[in-house]
Amino acid sequence: MIYAITIYGEPGVFEALPKDRQEEVMSGHGALQSALTDRGEFVSMKLMPPTSAVMVEPATTEGTAPLITDGPFAETKENFLGFYAADFKDLDEALEYAKMISSPVARLEVRPVAWAGGAISSE
């Protein structure tokens, strides 16, 4: 089963940490990435800060184009920061891997993937 390990946190907290703490967090990611590389294919993405985001809002009336806006009013509230996805034996295994990147700056969600295409496929 493919599981996604999604990462939520307040944008900017990581950047405000002292360098050695940043390295601590990054070493967790380094360990997870090399462990995932060893066992097969995976995808991972780190999103840029929400200030760089643009929103495509659904058209309000039929026949009009979707509305492009300059992003949600960026607050410092918890935000989607990035994710990993890989094929795991079961939930327990996915959780074991997720623990490698656990840190006080991130809340992690481990959730089964219903469909995936591209680099890794659920079919």
Partner: peptide
Amino acid sequence: MSDWLEATITLHRPRA
């Protein structure tokens, strides 16, 4: 632990 707290506080300082 206090590093994490300080980072959070630093982040919120301008708005607060």
